[in-house]
């Protein structure tokens, strides 16, 4: 991810891009789309949306920003708006595909196990992409964490610290507890890694 200005955060750049777009200049928004698409991708994929569908959900989130450009009252809330919109669209997509699947197979709703299964966790054979045992251990350890812990760590790993606020609000976590929650998720991840025999975490 590129960070054009060390002093501004992703949230600041989102606000600038929106303001300029409203004034008829779209260059900043174009740059911002390129910069922030990865965090939207990660947000949508964290909800269990398959890759092909996630591609469309991310596109439609950006298209929605253009349609609602005039209705976002506080430009500083643009990043949060995008994350919330992407997340809701992802839920909607998961819900709809589940309904379609049920209709197709004619089976009654299954138990909780199927509803928590994340389809299509990786694009290809994982074994080939996990270069070594340490990667494998980390990947497995990550997936042992609660889903929202995984989501938080994935988003935080892509963000500048000032953006934690937008992220925490977007994923429905009290703003004041983001630091502690991130700390707990990291500590939990370390605990799992240690249990799996990794002694050096970095």
């Amino acid at each position: 991810m590129t960070r054009p200005a060390e002093t501004s955060s992703l949230g600041d750049r989102a606000a600038e891009a929106l303001v300029e777009y409203r004034e008829g200049r779209s260059d900043a928004l174009t740059d911002f789309v390129r910069e922030a698409t990865p965090i939207l991708w990660r947000t949508v994929r964290s909800q269990g949306v398959p890759r092909e569908t996630a591609d469309d959900v991310v596109q439609q989130t950006w298209a929605a920003l253009v349609r609602h450009a005039d209705s976002i009252s506080e430009p500083q809330a643009t990043l949060k708006w995008l994350l919330v919109t992407a997340r809701r669209a992802a839920w909607e997509s998961v819900r709809k595909h589940r309904t379609d699947d049920m209709r197709r197979t004619g089976l009654p709703d299954d138990d909780a196990e199927t509803t928590t299964t994340l389809p299509d966790a990786a694009p290809g054979p994982e074994a080939e992409l996990l270069r070594n045992e340490r990667d494998r251990t980390l990947w497995d350890a990550l997936r042992e964490l609660p889903a929202r812990c995984q989501e938080l760590l994935r988003l935080v790993s892509l963000a500048d610290r000032p953006d934690y606020k937008a992220i925490s609000a977007a994923i429905g976590m009290p703003v004041g507890s983001i630091g502690a929650t991130r700390g707990r998720c990291l500590a939990k991840l370390r605990t799992v890694l240690t249990e799996r025999g990794e002694t050096s975490w970095t």
Binding site: T37, W41, V58, Q59, W62, A122, P123, L129
Partner: peptide, 16 residues
């Protein structure tokens, strides 16, 4: 393991 698809940002810009 789950890379952002090539060209996604460009498709998004066109969708916009």
């Amino acid at each position: 393991l789950d890379p952002v698809p090539d060209g996604l940002a460009e498709r998004a810009l066109f969708a916009m």
